[in-house]
Simulated assay, not measured.
Amino acid sequence: MSKKRPLILVTNDDGITAPGIRALIEVMNTLGDVCVVAPDSPQSGMGHAITINDTLYCDSVTVTKDAPQTEYSCSGTPVDCVKLAVNEILKRKPDLCVSGVNHGSNSSINVIYSGTMSAAVEAGTLGIPSIGFSLLDYNLEADFEPSKKYIKAIASQCLKNGLPKGVVLNVNIPKLGKKDIKGMKVCRQANAHWEEQFDKRVNPLGREYYWLTGEFINEDKGEDTDEWALHNGYVSVVPVQFDLTAHHAIKDINTWDLS
């Protein structure tokens, strides 16, 4: 790989053959030398899971003939992919890690469940500027063309300017045509949650099992949130920190009798 061009690590949680990652690779090839390390099968909702009690396999593959990128298919989670890429596959630390494009939203509280975002966060903990991209369309035939302009713009700025220490970007793109996306807004994460339900069933052998279902509830009426931006036709860009310390609570908890 050329040392003059940025080295870009591409990963995802939908699997190495998913249309979303193919669109992301296409854009990244215009910005630098690309290495893809992605799961060999869908890993949605895996969060920051890592493989510790099983073997990991990572094989060189060719998904798109004559494409310039190098690609590896990994048996593990999105976070495993990043760890393997940085520690075993790449000759130097990437200048940028991009994850996605996820099929479906990772806005608001969804960020904590997301394998897409966890891969970006993992790279961030290693000092690599990182971005997770998601399109609000779960269809495997989703149109990623309108997203490419915004993906390139954000990735280009990260390569040029870097990111603040301890921060990665969570980017969500509305399901709209090129002419209908109004632009981008830097936002905060909306205060929202899932009200989960479990669909209880019985299999042919008489054993009970469950399907997780639920409703997304947005209680946040602020016009500075990712949910507001997305519902009003904007790409949302949320800076996410991976220091989970609730700094504002330290003073109050220090008043407790902990002797």
Rank of each mutant, 00 (worst) to 15 (best):
D59L: 05
E223W: 00
A246E: 14
P164G: 09
Q189K: 14
D40V: 00
L56V: 01
Y113R: 13
V34C: 08
D220M: 13
D80Q: 09
A192K: 00
E145T: 14
Q43I: 01
I173G: 02
I154D: 06
A123E: 06
V37L: 12
I16V: 15
M117L: 14
Q197C: 06
L140V: 05
K152V: 02
I16H: 13
T17H: 11
K4Y: 09
G183F: 11
K152L: 13
P129K: 02
N106I: 15
M117R: 00
H48T: 12
N254E: 15
S114P: 08
N161A: 13
I21T: 08
N110W: 07
N12L: 08
D220C: 10
I109W: 04
Q157K: 15
K160G: 03
K178L: 05
A155D: 13
I181S: 13
V37S: 03
L140A: 12
S107T: 03
V237Y: 00
V235F: 04
L230M: 09
L90K: 08
G166H: 08
N191V: 11
H103S: 07
P146E: 05
V63S: 05
G115I: 04
I25L: 06
T30V: 00
G222M: 02
K175H: 08
K182D: 02
P78N: 03
A123Q: 11
K83M: 15
I131W: 03
N102E: 03
V79I: 10
A67K: 14
Y57L: 09
K160F: 03
E196L: 14
S60V: 06
S107I: 01
V238N: 09
A190W: 03
Q197D: 12
N170A: 14
D95C: 11
G206L: 08
E215M: 12
P39N: 02
C97S: 02
W256Y: 06
S2R: 15
G222N: 13
R188E: 10
Q157D: 13
L135E: 05
V79N: 11
I8S: 12
R5W: 02
L230Q: 04
K4F: 03
K3H: 12
K221F: 01
V10H: 01
P42T: 01
C97Y: 01
I173M: 11
G15C: 07
Y234R: 10
N29V: 01
M46D: 07
I8Y: 10
N110G: 11
A119R: 13
N218P: 01
D80C: 04
N53M: 05
I112H: 05
S236N: 05
A249C: 11
S2M: 07
I25R: 15
C158F: 04
G45L: 04
G115N: 05
N102M: 07
